[in-house]
Design a protein around this nucleic acid. Structure first.
Lengths: 213, 213
DNA sequence: GGAGAAATTATACACTTGCATAATTACGCG
DNA sequence: CGCGTAATTATGCAAGTGTATAATTTCTCC
């Protein structure tokens, strides 16, 4: 009974790593990558700074791990809702909804995106992650549009599909951006409504109505 | 003939200030706000660091001045092309074109926007500048859409106009973002073409054809 | 051309940063 | 229980940060 209180507790490696990554994302969202200091991250994770070096060989490595964690979470959140849907139109609609609803639309998610952008443009590994994620999004959207158009009896050539995907992706990105930048400027569901209408107008599809047979 | 070369040259205050602001914008675009160090800025402007303190009472003040300079330049570039156009439709088209053409669409402009975002959300003065600029953009776009719809004989109620402006603003912002993030992914004029088509599809206007009377 | 004032440089300081290394502590295993 | 290993803390360091202040240099005006 020398000292009832232990000075620290050992944690499984993966749990500690994730805790450090989550603390990193918090601070990056608040203060940017350079503002997320090793000491600040350690404090946010209730740990001393030396421990970070024990799990990540440098701050750079921790930042990259945090970025990939964040990107994976965003894609999961966007695509989870529509995975089970049946018709292509329903899946397209679910994609729009998922992209324009919290927690995808969120000031913190936007802040993270902006904070990482600089490093993404310079660091090759982060650039690769970014381009892969972006291509995944747009290819998936293009496939959804193609399927929905065929389903409706209005198939489109590849060149037009590309333009439609770029345009729909842009309107979703823009609404996502504005929803994150001005969270109080839009009523609940307003972004989804505008997003659906815009994608419908651009593609010529009707996303609102249920099955048409 | 003691020493033919002067050690420095005096410059008019406004010219020096602007040179410092331009150097600041360069470094902010490259390395973010925190990465734009006082010493780095001074070096980029071919000046010693003490001079910055002589023109700006703190780095914070220099950053704010640089941000406002950048925002003013962006609005000028966006609205200059359409100022003289006649019909509302032509002005709307000029707005889309100006927003989706270099130097508005540009990796550096995107990097600046992203780098400043964090500070914009926290600093009250920068937040005010941002909201004012954003409101100016969207109100102007909404007015253009309203005028073009009336011109075409299809006036719309205020609630619908708001949604159309949000949607068109979003598609323009999204294309601007993607053009800046992936400069090589789009052919010259492709963004303008997609932007025109999308705004046309959303509003129901025909932006391509010339006068219809 | 020389004095005065302002622009510019030079130097210094306290603080933060990322990283390294040594000293402790917890906890599974015999 | 106690021993060893790895997790965790503690301490230190060199480089970079913003800012303050003193020392120079340029240029205008008489």
């Amino acid at each position: 009974m020398t000292d009832e209180r232990r000075k620290f507790k050992r944690e499984p490696a993966e749990a500690r790593k994730e805790a450090l990554i989550l603390a990193t994302l918090e601070l990056v969202a608040e203060n940017g990558v350079r503002g997320a200091t090793v000491r600040g991250i350690a404090q946010r994770a209730d740990v001393t700074q030396g421990l970070i070096r024990h799990y990540f060989s440098s701050k750079e490595e921790l930042i990259i791990a945090a970025y990939e964690h964040h990107m994976n979470q965003m894609t999961d959140l966007t695509f989870a809702p529509g995975a089970a849907a049946g018709s292509a139109r329903a899946r397209l609609r679910a994609f729009v909804d998922g992209s324009l609803t919290p927690p995808v639309v969120d000031p913190r998610a936007l802040a993270l995106w902006a904070s990482f952008l600089n490093k993404v443009q310079n660091d090759p590994q982060m650039k690769e992650t970014h381009q892969r994620t972006y291509a995944y999004f747009r290819d998936r959207l293009e496939a959804l549009i193609a399927a929905a158009l065929e389903e409706a009896g209005h198939p489109a050539p590849a060149a037009r599909l590309r333009q439609l995907a770029i345009a729909c992706n842009a309107v979703i990105d823009g609404l996502w951006l504005e929803g994150g930048a001005l969270p109080d400027a839009f009523a609940a569901g307003e972004l989804v409504e505008i997003g659906r209408q815009s994608v419908a107008a651009i593609t010529g599809l009707d996303l609102e109505q249920e099955a048409e047979t």
